[in-house]
Design a protein around this nucleic acid. Structure first.
Lengths: 345, 345
DNA sequence: TTGTATGCGTTATCAC
DNA sequence: GTGATAACGCATACAA
């Protein structure tokens, strides 16, 4: 256990070359005679040498690490995004540092600080403060401080006054396509459940929802839009409250898939037939195609999204020009949960 | 952008102290006069100094990083395990490097290599080669090589001849509890679907399954045990094949929750009433309590599992003694999908 | 094609 | 309490 760490100096000694030459074979410098390269490699094998990345980072002033902050990796929306980025980063030789913030400001700060200290080349940020319509002054200031030292990419979020790279999927258009779909199925009474005022992903969708109802000359019922949160239980709560209305909608749109899972569960537990409602979610997360009924929802185009993220990362690191704002088309996925309105007048 | 990296030397200069003193306030050394400490801290603030973790790691010969390899973070079984470990590691001041292997030997190797180069303090390994009943010689050798340089913890797996720390949930007992549960509901005809021969998690369960049938004087029908894989589609395939039998079981156990999702889907698409079968899964992953019917399954006791992982990590790093093998109790979660057998003779 | 000297930004070991 | 000085392990500029 007291085994001395072996370094390029040790290799140099046993291979009868200078440390520089060892370093050269390490970095793949072609100006090394084949025979000596071979000898060095052999010795490295023999002594079980492994280069020390910390030392390398120190001299090269680059770490090949990318920081990735998201609220909760157990949420399929984030894990589906993360894994695409990780795979593509791996192919490019980058290493990702993943951190879950649980939407906590303190954890976000801690992770940001660590990323700066570890000198990540770039930070990808999802959720939390960048989705608040009114982040605190400290949150903004902190982001600006971080940005002075490392480039920042916000995914599906933004912050007033923080001028960084932005990649987002078109949630507004996504919501419009939902309404369009429901209208084409003959629905006139449409509800929106879940979300939270002041969180951008909810605000954007709610605004588009209302506007698109209007465009279709449909009435917006205030009591049919129920903010409750983003989780499964929040969906149950919303559904419960929705069901207290005298008049009920024929279609229910969720701020995301999760709340619809909750709504369906609530219906079942209270013997409310789910056949009375068309349900539409948002995100197209993992279980949405296997739940019953399978869920009509909006897919974020994860493949394109993650590709764009990597592209921007690459360009930032290679100091090439990039668009500051990227908008990605979403696509409506039609499944069993939405069907023709047969309660028509 | 050409801003020079500012170091403790810069701070030292403007604060009229030596770099050593700056380092002292950085490490929280108490032997610094309060007034100078304050002055130094002020200057650090002013110049926006952030310590360089690479340099620190280099001299301290410790990185506070832990490598974590798992097959696929989008699989809730893994993300539920991972997030618990990440949170607890964070509380202890450790940083986790997550890598998805997709069960590919090449990716596992690449990740292992990177972990060694980055000098992680410990590696947690799940899935892939450590679940094969017959790993290749290279896979074994590689693991041993890695173990010479960094401690290894295998979670729910092991490798012949690789003497490392092992933490696993009691899959054998978990399967026995399933059979026990089904028998108590009056089931005599029980099927096992999914999994793959040669993968430990399947082998262990299949063995316990057969033994426990025998213990209960139930007949094991070879044609009712169907290996097909671990995914949703594999569950569909298995169910399809199961349905071709003349005589059908009354209860169907899945090698995991995923295959049951698939089996349910297959039934629905082919108008086979799911009320004919009790279904039991394994893992208790995220959607199992919200799918319909909610799934009876075995929970791995994630809280305990992740706590044990962290405990072992801590003890390894602090060079304290630990049990080499830890076995964790699982718990049967009974939900809607399993019910009394009413086709009784 | 190879070697020497130096720097990267900390911490640790002494000495004062 | 504080400060020189030497590691830590590699890469790079410059020589040879």
């Amino acid at each position: 256990m007291k085994k001395k760490n072996i370094t390029i100096y040790d290799i140099a000694k046993v291979a009868n070359v200078s440390p520089t030459t060892v370093s050269r074979v390490l970095t793949g410098n072609p100006l090394v005679k084949e025979s000596t390269r071979k000898r060095v490699l052999e010795k490295m094998e023999e002594l079980e040498f492994t280069p020390n990345e910390a030392a390398r980072s120190l001299t090269k002033k680059q770490t090949n690490m990318i920081g990735f902050i998201l609220p909760d990796i157990t949420n399929p929306f984030f894990s589906q995004t993360y894994i695409g980025v990780e795979r593509k980063a791996f192919e490019q030789g980058y290493t990702i540092l993943l951190r879950n913030s649980m939407n906590s400001r303190e954890m976000e700060s801690a992770h940001l600080r660590e990323f700066v200290e570890r000198r990540v080349e770039c930070i990808v940020f999802m959720g939390g403060r960048i989705n608040k319509s009114e982040p605190t002054e400290e949150e903004i200031v902190e982001m600006k401080e971080v940005m002075k030292r490392v480039p920042l990419i916000m995914v599906n979020g933004q912050m007033e006054g923080v001028d960084c790279h932005t990649i987002r999927t078109d949630e507004e258009e996504g919501m419009r396509s939902i309404i369009h779909h429901l209208v084409s199925l003959g629905h006139k009474d449409i509800s929106l459940i879940g979300g939270e005022e002041g969180v951008s992903t909810a605000d954007i969708k709610a605004k588009a929802f209302q506007e698109e109802l209007e465009n279709n000359n449909l009435e917006f019922h205030n009591e049919w839009q129920i903010y409750s949160g983003f989780g499964i239980d929040d969906g149950r709560v919303a559904m419960k409250r929705l069901l207290t209305n005298k008049k009920l909608p024929t279609a229910i749109v969720g701020i995301n898939d999760m709340v619809i899972y909750g709504a369906l569960k609530e219906c079942r537990e209270h013997k409310v037939s789910i056949d009375h409602f068309s349900f539409v979610g948002y995100d197209d997360i993992f279980p949405s195609d296997i739940v019953h009924p399978s869920l009509t929802t909006v897919n974020h185009n994860y493949e394109v999204l993650t590709s764009e993220i990597i592209e921007v990362i690459k360009k930032i690191i290679e100091k090439k020009d990039t668009e500051k704002e990227i908008l990605i088309d979403t696509k409506l996925i039609i499944r069993e949960s939405s069907f023709e309105n047969n309660q028509g007048k």
